[in-house]
């Protein structure tokens, strides 16, 4: 089988399923489990063939899909149907998976929006604070009210700084 993307570029089984759903133009509200399970398994097998790392979560999802598929294929219990008084509504075994996919998709979209903002923000340059230590009067300060996160924050800001070229100085050696 031919694939465009390697497994590493997916963020887990939900991401892979969304990719398959998108690629085969499947209705997310009415997932043909047999079909998608087949594609999913083919994908996993191809990856194993190539000896690529398959994260454990992918195998759990494979088992889940197979379970749903068999549940949908096997006949339902007759006893429940005989009970007229209580209308037992047979829950769609796909329901939970569908909800999970929709929820994940939501945040995948939100992450895309954040990526856009990340890129836009990176276009704005600032400068490091000026060294104002010369203006500090030599007297003892009360201890600053800071915590671990302030330290991490200060370091993160420092690491984000871009270094610009310094003015060039040319010396002529005699």
């Amino acid at each position: 089988m031919q694939y465009h993307v390697k497994l590493e570029s997916f963020e887990g089984p939900l991401d892979l399923l969304l990719h398959l759903i998108h690629r085969y133009e499947i209705d997310i509200y009415d997932i043909p489990v047999a079909q998608i399970t087949e594609q999913y398994m083919a994908y996993i097998h191809a990856m194993q063939e190539l000896q690529l790392d398959v994260a454990s979560e992918y195998l759990v999802m494979a088992a889940t899909l197979l379970e749903i598929k068999s549940k949908m294929l096997l006949p339902k219990h007759e006893e429940e149907a005989l009970d007229d008084d209580v209308l037992v509504e047979e829950e769609d075994p796909r329901e939970q998976l569908m909800q999970q996919l929709l929820e994940y998709k939501k945040f995948k979209e939100a992450a895309k929006e954040l990526r856009k903002r990340e890129e836009e923000r990176a276009l704005l340059f600032t400068k490091p604070p000026s060294d104002l230590s010369a203006y500090v009067e030599a007297k003892s300060f009360p201890p600053l009210d800071v915590d671990l996160y302030d330290m991490l924050g200060a370091l993160a800001k420092l690491l984000r700084r871009k270094k610009l070229q310094k003015p060039l100085h040319t010396k002529v050696a005699r």
Binding site: E11, G12, P13, L14, E57, M61, Q100, E103, Y104, F107
Partner: peptide
């Protein structure tokens, strides 16, 4: 809760 939404560790 994060892992439940993402489906991975």
């Amino acid at each position: 809760e994060i892992e439940e939404i993402r489906g991975v560790k």
